[in-house]
Amino acid sequence: MSSEEIFTGELIGTALLILLGGGVSAAVVLKHSKARSGGWIVVAFGWGLAVMSGAYAANELSGAHLNPAVTLGLSIKSGDWSHVPVYLGGQMAGAMVGAFLVWLTYLGQFQAHLHDPEVLRGTDVDPAGPVTRPVDAPKLPGGPVLGVFATGPEIRNPAQNVITETIATTVLVLVILTLGLNPGLTRSGISLLVVGLLVVSIGLSLGGPTGYAINPARDLGPRIVHALLPLPNKGSSDWSYAWVPVLGPLAGGAAAGGIFRLAF
């Protein structure tokens, strides 16, 4: 694979991942969306299918890393670091493109949501439940739509949040590395389906504490877009937390690479 193919594949695949993943988050969070309050299971399956779709689109061009933690784990496994900067560049560019497309897709819903008096007061009514509750805030210091773009913890404890992200990403990357031991799965493309289902499983099982970034580009790229977009009343991009979904997944990717080399 050439550097051009790698960059193009990672850009397209990661953009699709974020468009579909951020799209399901927007669909569930934003007022005047037909999927409003679809719930955590919808979000988990939406993100898993997003990863699978992006992976299938990028696989022939770049091998479909779509995640700096995966690139790190694979580099530790193979010892080949020559294309790491190209992978990271494509992933970050793709994540930002995908986040921008989410904004375009839900432009009317963003405008309505961010001008809604109940949202601004933090007393938005959840149509799926009997009680009135804040949406996205106050647990997140960020604004009322930051959760469409980036992750945030339910309980803000940086050390614990990093541990959670490290564990979840170790699971993700270690399974991806072990799938490579079965050439039949890789050749048939079934391994990409398995990865998508794995992301669903991680979301359902390990995503509750932090929203499971498990991918530095997935969180940092859209967070930058949130900061840059002309969203009215959008609030903070929560930069004080932004290092957690970068450090934790990178630590998990490195741990998975180390475990693989020791065990296999």
Rank of each mutant, 00 (worst) to 15 (best):
A44R: 01
G98M: 05
M1T: 13
L185R: 10
G13C: 00
P144W: 04
Q111K: 10
A27K: 04
P216C: 11
M52G: 00
V24T: 07
V173Q: 01
L140K: 09
T166S: 03
V148F: 03
G221Q: 04
S191Q: 13
G22N: 02
G98C: 09
G184A: 14
E5P: 00
V200S: 13
V43K: 07
R187F: 11
I190F: 15
K77P: 00
V28K: 09
L104M: 14
A227D: 08
E5L: 11
V199H: 06
G143V: 06
V119R: 12
P245T: 08
I176D: 06
M52H: 03
L193D: 11
I163G: 03
T164P: 01
P183Q: 14
N59R: 12
N215L: 07
S201D: 12
G108W: 13
F264K: 10
A227C: 03
E4L: 15
A227F: 09
T170R: 04
G203H: 08
V42L: 13
L229N: 00
M92D: 03
V194G: 09
L88Y: 11
I224C: 07
H32V: 04
L120P: 05
A50I: 01
A137T: 14
L228D: 01
G54E: 00
V70D: 05
N67M: 07
L101Y: 05
L181C: 12
V194F: 14
W81A: 04
E165W: 03
R261D: 03
P127Y: 04
L172Y: 01
S82D: 09
S37K: 03
A217N: 07
V131K: 12
A99I: 10
N59I: 09
G211P: 11
W243I: 10
G22T: 04
I259N: 04
L179M: 12
A112R: 15
E60N: 13
L247T: 13
S25C: 15
G73D: 07
P138C: 09
V125I: 15
A50R: 00
A26M: 03
S2R: 04
L185P: 05
H115N: 15
D80F: 00
F45W: 14
L11C: 08
R187G: 07
S82R: 12
G248L: 06
P127G: 07
I41F: 15
A35D: 00
A242C: 05
A99M: 10
A168F: 00
I176L: 06
G90K: 08
M96L: 08
S3E: 15
A159D: 02
G98S: 07
I76T: 00
I214C: 10
A55L: 11
D219W: 01
A99E: 09
T132V: 15
G253E: 03
G21C: 05
G221P: 01
F149Y: 14
G253H: 02
H115L: 14
P141Y: 08
P130G: 15
H65I: 00
G180W: 13
Y106P: 08
E118C: 10
N182S: 13
G252K: 01
A112H: 11
